[in-house]
Each structure stands twice: as C-alpha cells, then as structure tokens.
Design a protein around this nucleic acid. Structure first.
Length: 934
RNA sequence: GCGUCUGUGGCGUAAUUGGUAGCCGCGCCAGACUUAGGAUCUGGUGCCGCGAGGCGUGGGGGUUCGAGUCCCCCCAGGCGCACCA
C-alpha cells in the first residue's frame, strides 16, 4: 500500500480538532512548560516557506515535552496592529480591519495544513478590543507610576505627590526628564495645571516635547529601533529630527535592570551583546564648566575625566539649550545661520556626510583644573540626545575632536608620554600621563579614577553612569493602532477611568496618514469624552465644561506585542490581564523561538513591560523569556536562465560562457534540481512560447544564487505547495533537516526527496504493497534493539539540545538499519514511532493506531532508552562499520608506548574481537582507551 | 573603527565534546527490477596516484601521545553597534 499522506494528514488533523487534543488548562498535578513563538504580522503576502521554520521547531519541542509528561502551553495569535498591516491596507485601498481579517484567515489556513499543536482556543489578536483593553490598561498604570531609584522599582505616583507635599523635591532620587527643585511650599502653591506638568516630569508614561524621528512619507514618528541607517525600517523613507509633543515610555529608568537581567536568562551571547550595545552603559563624570563673564554654567559628560588638562575647546549640540544662552551678540548671525543649515539636513545626510562643520559661539568656558579660557563651539557632531548635549573636547585623544581641531586650527595638547598626535589622535586608554598636573606619571586607568575622585572632592561635578538607551516614543500619527485612553482638559492629559476600557478605535472616513502629522483620528466624529456622563460622545459636543477632546494619536506596533505572552495564560479573563492563579502556574515563557530582528525592539520593550508589571506585583517573574532561540532566516534560492543577447534562445548553464548572454530570473517552481521544465517555461510568458534551447545532456540546467525571498526574484516557495506535493510531515522533517536551527540558509528543495523517501521506507516496514500489515509480535533481536535504543538516546539528546537536523538523520539511519534487517516487529516499531511523533505527527498517529492503539500518540510516553541494550549489543557487535574497536585497558603509568601496544594486542578483548583478522594499527591513549584498527 | 559569530567533499551538513575526519541526505557513477521512469532496490563516491602510498577540516604558528575541536597571529564572510564623548 502506498503512503498516502494526503488522506492521513487530513484524517488526523480533523481528529485532533474534533477531540480538542491541543486544549490546555492549568493542571497542578503536572509540571508546566511554556513554549512560545513570535506571533506573526498577518501581511498580505501570506506565509512563505521560511516562516514556519521556527514554528516547526517549537512544535517539535512542545510535543516532545508533552510526551515527557509536561503540561505544555503552546499558543498562537496575530500581531495585527501597526504599520505593516496598515501599509498593506493603504496599498490595496481597503479598510485595514478587512484586509487584516482576510490575511489572518489565509495565515490560519496555511498554519493548519502543517499540523501544529497550537491551542487555538487561546488565540489573541492585538487589534481585538478585548485584547487591547489590557494594553490600554497597562498604559494607564504606567501613567500613574514613577520610577524610584532608591527602591529600584516603579511606584504609584500618589506616593510622589505625598512626598512633594511633605518635603518638595528635596533628596529625590527618581527617574525624570529633567532635574527640578522645588519646596513643599512651592508645590502647594502650584495650580492644578502646574502640578500636572510637574508630575509629568516623573511619570513612566509621559507626554513631552522631545526630538523625534519624523518620517514624512509614513506620516508618523518612529522609535529608534524602527529607524535603520537614517531611513525608516519599513519602506526605507528618509527620517528627520523634529521636536514634537509625544507620549513616551521611560524605558531608560530600567536601563540598569535590563542590563543586569541579561545575566539571569538563557539567550545567545550575541543577542545579549546586541542588547548590551543598545543599552550602552558608560561610566564617567558629569562636570560643570563656568563661563567667563556669565552666570551660566554648562554641564558636560565625559568618560575621560583624566584628559581634563587637554581640553582646548567645548562643543554644544545644535539643539542644545546652552546654544542660545552662550551665543554672544556678535556671533549670533553666524550661529543662527549654522543652526538653520543643520536643521535642513536629514538624519541620513548628517550621518552619511562626515565633513567637519561648526561655529564659534563667542563665549569662553573656564577649565576648572587649569583655569584656562577655552572657546565654546557649536557642531552637529555632538548629539543632543546623549549625555548633556555638550562635551569637552580633547583633540589629542579623541578622533572626532581631533578632526574638528584640525579643521578649525585649534590647539592640540598631548597628554600621554610618547604618543604621536601629528597625524591622528591617540584614543587608546593606555600609557603614562604627562602635561596633566597632579595626574602626571599615572597610567590612564589610574588617572581616570583619580580624576573622578578629584572632580567629586572639589565639587566640580559628580560620577555618573550614562546610557545610550532612550525612552521609547509611544505615539504614532496613524489610524491602525490602539487608541490612547486619554482626554485633554485645560491642555493637560487625563486618563479615562479603567471601568470605561476598552476605548475602541473609532470609525473614520479617511484613515490614510497625512504628511503634516495630523493624526487620522482627527477625522473621527465620535471622539470626545463626556467627563460627567463617563462616556464617549460626538466631537461636536466639546464644550470645555464637561466634554473634552480625546487623544488623536495611536500606540505603536510594539505596544500590543509587549505583553501578549502574559495574556495567553488567561486569554478570556475580562477582569484582569491575567489571574493570579494562571500567572503563578504558567509564570513565564520557558522557551521562546523567533527571529533576531527583534533584538532591540520587541525583546527590549517586552522585558521593560514585564519588569514594570513585576514592580506592581502583577506578575511573579521579572524576566519574561527564560530561554530564547533565534531561528535563522530562510533565504531564497533563485534560478536563472541565460538568454543569448538579441535572440530568443536560452543556453544551459554549462554552455553559457560560449555565448554573450543575459541572465533572467525564472520562477523556481518551474525548476527541479536546477533542471528547467521547458514546457512550463514556454507557458510562463507569451514571449517565451517560441523559445529555443541549447541543452546539455538533454537537460536545461539553470544557474542559481542566494537572494532574499521575494516575489520579484520569483523565488518564493509556499509551504502549501510543498504540503500538496510531499505532505506536511515531509515539510516538517525537511525544514529541520536543512541544517542547524539557528543558522540562516537558503531554501533549497533539492534534498526533499530523500526525506520523503525516508517516510516511505518507514511506511514500508508496516505495510506491504498489497496493504497487508506486516507487523508481528515476535521478540526483537539484540541488533534490532540496539538500533532502536541508539536512536531513542540520540533523538532525546538532540531534542534537548535543539539539534533537530541530527535527530532526523538518526531516524533515517534507524530505518535504513531496520529495512536491512527486514524488521517489522511491534517491539521495535512502536517505541520508534512514538519517538518520531514530535517530528512527523500525522504519520506517527496513523501508524500508532495501525498497531491497534485506541488512544492518541499525543498521550503516549516518550520511550526510555535502555543502556543495557546498547552495552550488550556493543559486546556482541564491537566492531563498528569503519573497523575500529575501542575498549579500556589498565596499565601502569610508567609503561612505554611499545609496552602498552604489546599489552593491547595480547589483551583478551583484542583477541576476542580480532577473530582472525589482521591488526593494522594500535592507538594508545593515556586515558586508558585503546583503539585498534583492523 | 568596536563588539560578536562562522569557515569541513561538487552541495546541505555530521563528528561520542580533545580520541585519530566526512555520519545522514542531495548529486554523481555502476548494477538489479521494469514497456518506461523524475518509481523502487543494491553497491560505490574527500583529493592525488595504476599501485604501494601520500595529502587533507580558510592560512601560519603553538600546547598535547593525539587538534576540525584548545591558545596566539593573519585571511575571508555574516550579524550587531557606530560621530554615544
């Protein structure tokens, strides 16, 4: 009987669905295990063959853990809000809700065909009001919290209010946008609006005028991780810096904890390193420089306090508040002109163009150590957003300062003995100090320490840790996102009552973004808040007494994805994000599989979000994802045909160098093992209908290249097509067989037949051609048991180490061996297919039932391998196929190599195994292992 | 520039974790069964050499009885950060 994968897969998919086989609940009697995939954006293109890679791996692991007796949570959902879904909707001219719904349906169809063990009863969609109610709710909690550095946690804002009433800002050690100082009396004297403004400085979700990445083409601001090389990650549009009033999340308050937390989780070193870089901790000193003839003092941040004696000028960022204060009347026109010129340039231009530019402010700062007067300049090489937006320049030991000094002919004072600064600066933190007063003679690290102490003792400044990580900009001028639960009264934002959540996204007539930055929600007619009646009403009712405008921005894409893993634990709870019971049972994600592209976005925001909820006592684990694996990307493998220029003749790869040709992409679905299907090609496009071919060995061989998988390269392979042709089990096995999970690799169908053949051979052990079941109850031989237990051991080890490619190989070896032995015995096959069930669930289920089992293979127990069979079998069959024998031999330490060899040769073990064969070579190892090559 | 990972047959990869390379699969070669085969089965297949044998894990050095694996230097590629003071 043929292996009919189509019938088998449909049959069992239906069975699992009807039996609710994948429904999970809290089971206190079993240990839990939470396996999570990064949920997909349902884009219009559907899934290609690369998407399921991680899903297959996590599915195998989930099924394995279940066989091992764990209660496994393995949910799936959709990240349906945010730019991608909306851009697609705009391109196709349809309402995002409709296209999103369609896309989700298509994704679901594709996912279902692959036979995943997702518990779909727990599905979440970020665009579902019942879901985003909790996104809005979390935002309200953040608005009502501040971050206390002393306690290292978020605290209710009400505590801060109490404190202000009692002692003002004295002794405050909390995260804030800017340092402020006021007394209790001053606080009490403030108006409501002033108090709100003051509190805004401390809230974890706050509204502020900040420099943002504004993208005119997308009509929205973007977070730092959404901007790559100065252009938008989506679409690649230019991004400019603008000052706008935006909602922000005070992620920076958590910088140190985000850094420390990395030590406690099992992620790859490279991913942790990426996050460390992104957080960018640097220890240094913040120092005050007095300005000659002015009361203004400028604060700067430096990691090289030791180089204070080499400061020959100061530089301000163009956006710095100091610029205005320090520009002298004579210099004002020049400075103005410079600021305008800088303003016009986009971020990309500023980055790409490394030409030195700048302007003198006219002011002089006073070096607190040497008392020297040093000029203050403005230049765009200094960033407004880092440190204080002002630096002390040490051209001898900083390459950027050096370039600036050279360009404007400013003095350069070397501070390290023997360094040569005639051509370039000496940036290394090594050597002995000179020209540096009390620091002379010290090594650089010593000098850094001494200088910091000195700065503190003299009250010139203080030691400070700076982070590169900035607060996340949380508003988007877009339609397709979560609305804020916010209304504006007297120009200040207020939260809607939690009881009124969710605030549903209103209908609008025009949802396209605008280039000027007015959010599409401005078109909404029913978008005002009646404070008295506690409900959303028509905008026409806005009267400044009871009815107020609602926030027009929406939340960014990462809002909905930041806590979805928590929601899966308790997805239908309408009274809490998650019940205490569910949270305490499921705790956090044990295994998270997803792409590395979220390293500085989602994976930072989620950790922040989770830590915030942890601080509030709402979740019991501080880190959301215990172990994380990044599956590699599947690239496309494009195929080419070679057209002889000026003709309609195509020449095969091996002959193309004899002609003058142009390569053309061909659809990879018309090519098999790099051989072109000529009929399909002729039918592909009208202009190829009369194409002629120059073949080699009767075949047209195509060229190939690895490229991104995309429609324009004609190299997109759909999982559905593979399932149609080979079945889901083959697809699953093949995707794993392709190579190590974490490695990026091109999709290459060339080897898929081998995997499919393996399944057919396994089938062949159960059924003969006529469809008779061959399986017998005969006892298994030692050799057969060896094969089985070897495989179980190997596969178990491999799954635990996420080495799925080698476990597939192990299965193939086993089936080859059993085929060779013509072994169709239940005692061997039943454990084998249970072991295989995580990989090829449909086949396993079918064969498990064929053996007469009534229950699902899902509820079987993963077989335990027995070392006994391996040992016994080894004794009986000690010589492996490559002719080596290994055993232990005790011998005195002082023996020479020759003596040991002699002993090994005459040893009874050797004699037993030799069996008349000649010994080629004896290899002796001090570890008492002897290898004998026959 | 800084950080990080990787480099093995024609190709994807494997190697009991320092044990004497190339498992498994693709491809290729030969054979069997077939009207036929893009089906199935069997055998072979790192390179050089007729052969004995020699050479082989990017290159060079080192540690070791023994190195694909550990250490140092270089080369190549991938990823991350990049005027972050």
């Amino acid at each position: 009987m043929e292996y009919n994968f189509k019938d088998i897969e449909q049959k069992w998919q239906r069975y699992w669905k009807e039996h609710g086989s994948y429904k999970t609940g809290i089971r206190p009697d079993r240990p839990k295990y939470y396996v999570l995939d990064m949920f997909p954006y349902p884009s219009g293109a559907g899934l290609h063959v690369g998407h399921p890679l991680g899903y297959i791996a996590s599915d195998i692991y989930s099924r394995y853990k279940r066989l091992k007796g764990f209660n496994v949570l393995h949910p799936m959902g959709y990240d349906a809000y945010g730019l991608p879904a909306e851009q697609y909707a705009i391109q196709t001219g349809q309402h995002p809700a409709i296209t999103t719904e369609q896309n989700i349906r298509r994704y679901r169809e594709q996912l279902d065909k692959i036979g995943f063990s997702f518990d779909w009863s727990r599905e979440v969609r970020t665009s579902d009001p019942a879901y985003y109610k909790w996104t809005q709710w979390a935002f309200i909690q953040m608005f009502n919290s501040y971050y206390c550095h002393d306690r290292q946690q978020a605290r209710p804002i009400a505590e801060l209010v109490q404190r202000f009433e009692a002692q003002g800002s004295a002794g405050l050690n909390v995260a804030c946008t800017e340092e402020r100082s006021f007394s209790a009396a001053q606080w009490k004297a403030m108006t409501e609006r002033e108090r709100q403004e003051t509190l805004m400085n401390y809230r974890i979700a706050y509204l502020a005028d900040t420099m943002v990445n504004w993208c005119p083409q997308l009509g929205t601001v973007l977070a730092n991780d959404e901007v790559v090389n100065g252009v938008s990650e989506r679409g690649g549009y230019p991004v400019e810096q603008r000052k706008m009033r935006q909602w922000c999340l005070r992620v920076s308050a958590y910088a140190q904890r985000l850094l420390d937390g990395l030590e406690t989780i099992d992620w790859t070193d490279s991913l942790k390193e990426t996050q460390r870089n992104w957080i960018g901790r640097s220890e240094g000193a913040e120092m005050r420089f007095k300005i000659k003839g002015s009361d203004v003092e400028m604060n700067i941040f430096t990691t090289r306090a030791d180089t204070l004696f080499g400061v020959t000028f100061m530089v301000l960022a163009p956006e710095s508040d100091y610029v205005n204060a320090l520009t002298t009347p004579e210099q004002r026109p020049a400075v103005q002109a410079y600021l305008e010129a800088t303003k016009k340039r986009t971020e990309r231009e500023r980055q790409a163009d490394k030409k030195v530019s700048g302007v003198f402010t006219g002011s002089y700062a006073i070096n607190p150590l040497s008392g020297q007067e040093i000029p203050v300049w403005v230049s765009d090489y200094v960033l407004a957003g880092y440190g204080t937006g002002a630096i002390m320049a040490v051209p001898a030991h900083d390459s950027r300062d050096y370039a600036f000094a050279r360009h404007f002919n400013l003095p350069i004072i070397p501070l390290i003995e023997g360094c040569d600064v005639s051509e370039e600066s000496f940036d290394a933190k090594e050597g002995i100090m000179m020209n540096s007063g009390f620091l002379n003679g010290l090594t650089v690290p010593e000098a850094i320490r001494r200088a910091k102490e000195y700065v503190r003792e003299q009250g010139i400044g203080h030691v400070k840790v700076n982070y590169r990580l900035r607060d996340a900009i949380f508003s988007r001028q877009r339609y397709w996102g979560e609305p804020f639960p916010v209304y504006y009264k007297d120009g200040m934002p207020y939260m809607l009552p939690e009881a009124c959540l969710p605030v549903e996204l209103p209908e609008v007539t025009k949802f396209q973004p605008t280039a000027t930055g007015e959010p599409p929600l401005g078109h909404a007619t029913r978008w005002a808040w009646n404070e008295k009646e506690q409900k959303i009403v028509d905008t026409s009712e806005i009267d400044h007494v009871n009815v107020f405008p609602l926030e027009l921005n929406t939340m960014p894409g990462f809002a909905g994805s930041s806590a979805y893993y928590i929601r899966y634990m308790d997805p239908h709870n309408d009274r809490a994000l998650v019940s205490r019971e569910a949270d305490e049972y499921w705790r956090n994600v044990d295994l998270y599989i997803g792409g590395t592209e979220h390293a500085t976005g989602h994976l930072i925001y989620s950790r922040f979000w989770n830590k915030f909820l942890f601080d509030l006592g709402l979740v019991c684990e501080e880190e959301p994802f215990k172990k994380l694996i990044n599956q590699g990307m599947i690239q496309g493998r494009s195929n080419f045909v070679y057209r002889i220029n000026g003709t309609n003749t195509f020449v095969s790869l091996g002959l193309k160098d004899q002609y003058d040709t142009t390569p053309l992409h061909v659809d990879v679905n018309m090519v098999s093992n790099d051989v072109l299907d000529l009929d399909k090609f002729k039918a592909w496009r009208p202009e190829f209908a009369n194409a002629e071919f120059l073949l080699e060995d009767g075949k047209y061989v195509c060229g190939w290249a690895v490229e991104k998988m995309s429609k324009s390269m004609f190299n997109v392979v759909n999982p559905d097509d593979i399932v149609e042709r080979y079945g889901a089990d083959t697809l699953r096995l093949y995707e794993m067989f392709l190579g190590p999970l974490e490695q990026s690799k091109p999709w290459d169908t060339n080897g898929i037949d081998g995997v499919h053949r393996f399944l057919k051979r396994l089938w062949g052990l159960f059924y003969d051609r006529e469809g008779n079941l061959l399986v017998s109850d005969e006892p298994a031989t030692a050799e057969e048991l060896k094969s089985l237990h070897k495989t179980i051991k190997k596969v178990e080890y491999d799954i635990e180490h996420f080495s799925f490619n080698t476990s597939v190989s192990a299965f193939m070896i086993c089936v080859n061996e059993l085929s060779g032995l013509k072994c169709s015995k239940r005692a061997v096959l039943e454990p084998l297919i249970i072991t295989l069930a995580p990989f090829a669930p449909h086949m396993a289920e079918e064969l498990y039932h064929a053996l007469g089992n009534e229950t699902s293979v899902l509820d079987a127990a993963f077989p335990a391998y027995d070392e006994k069979y391996l040992v016994e079998a080894t004794k009986k069959y000690p010589i492996s196929f490559n002719g080596k024998v290994r055993f232990s031999l005790d011998f005195p330490a002082g023996w020479s190599k020759e003596e040991v060899e002699q002993a090994a040769l005459t040893h009874e073990q050797t004699q037993k195994y030799l069996d008349g064969k000649a010994v080629k070579k004896v290899i002796v190892v001090p570890g008492k292992i002897v290898n004998i090559v026959l």
